[in-house]
Amino acid sequence: MSDQDDILSIAAGWMADGETVALATVVETWGSSPRPAGSQLAVTASGKLAGSVSGGCIEGAVAEVAQKTMATGAPQLLDFGISDERAWEVGLACGGKLKVFVEKLEGARA
């Protein structure tokens, strides 16, 4: 699964540039989710994105939530799906459900 490996390299590059980075990972899926468990999206505090956790349906929402994780350092476990009240906003049109884990990548202390 080279695409997610690539995302870790991109994230490492961003951190080396002094960016604050969070990593979102699909940890579980039900139904017709477009990306399998293990798919990753890296987000910076400055708004850069790499990778994906869906077919584009929830990336915006995940990126927004990731800002909080970057600010506090506390990881979050997010549920997305048609039963979720946010479904209208974030629009998982495929009808699938998924769980996304969002964590901050802590940089090495200089």
Binding site: D5, L8, A12, L23, T25, V27, P75, Q76, L77, F101, E103, K104, L105, E106, G107, A108, R109
Partner: peptide, 29 residues
Amino acid sequence: MKAETFSRLHAARAQGRPVALLTRLPDGA
């Protein structure tokens, strides 16, 4: 992810060594 875990994961990948990362949910250990 702790800096130490990330750098160990990064090093293993750079060496082409297969590793698995285990994350406890929801606390992220």
